[in-house]
Write a protein that binds this DNA or RNA. Structure first.
Lengths: 135, 135
DNA sequence: TTATGTGTATTAGTTTAATAGTACACCGCA
DNA sequence: TGCGGTGTACTATTAAACTAATACACATAA
């Protein structure tokens, strides 16, 4: 049985950190929380966060300065976006199309609901503008 | 840390069986392979398939006849479709929209690619028509 | 220099899904 | 009746991820 890799905790944490980097919670070049800090934040063992950071370092999204901590790579945001874009078209979109087909859902319905989604989003954005447009 | 439930093997098998039921590999009212048979097919321990079948029985997609085996419920296909439809609009679509937004992908691009998807699909279907339209 | 906070490394323990193997009761059929 | 195929139940084991705790070298600042 070929089983789909289930997302382990350390990868879920890595995903979360990527989200935060995209949201400019941790801007490019700046330091992210220490392993122990982040472990406390997400209520997880430090060793688990170690794996998350090692993983993100391998992807060159963050890098390490000995004795100081981990920092967001200058092009970290770009790397994340490119990786996710690739993943989206390769993995997620085919699954999505398959769902549309077997459930017999019309694309116009999706289009319509996405318009509503954008509308709500813009409403929220007026109150909470993205931090990198404020700077 | 609130972790997303990763799909365990027995649930992946249940999903696979649902796919097969939708594809009329196991038509409504008919028998599905025995636990030991299916375990051998997917190369997995029998206990794992036991859990899959128990799960699908709880969802009233299959039912049991003592000493005989498991059978597809008369409205099994309908149940699967309804469940997946609900799951799609509740879980998958919001995630999909979020991806579209953060990756700045236009819906027209999706629409275009889906048209191609349907085109390929129809090509395949001419060679492999769905079994329930043959009957 | 010393103290404190970094990451790193190591060892041991816990948890849970999946595996392995066995035994048993029910059903249909010969 | 008995045989072979069902599901069911149970115990024990394995494997992998996560947890727990500790020790240590490096960097900064008091």
């Amino acid at each position: 049985m070929i089983l789909s890799e289930n997302l382990s905790i350390y990868l879920q944490i890595a995903e979360r950190i990527c989200d935060e980097i995209l949201d400019n919670v941790y801007p490019p070049g700046e330091r992210i929380p220490s392993i122990r800090e982040y472990a406390a934040m997400v209520e997880v063992n430090a060793n688990t966060v170690v794996r998350s950071y090692e993983w993100l370092q391998r992807l060159e999204i963050i890098y390490n300065k000995r004795g100081l901590g981990y920092f967001v790579a200058p092009d970290g945001k770009h790397r994340i976006r490119e990786m996710r874009r690739e993943q989206f078209f390769r993995d997620e979109l085919p699954k999505f199309f398959s769902r549309l087909y077997t459930l017999d859902i019309d694309v116009s319905e999706i289009e319509k609901q996405y318009a509503e989604y954008l509308k709500k989003k813009s409403g929220v954005l007026e109150l909470n503008p993205p931090t990198d447009t404020i700077v």
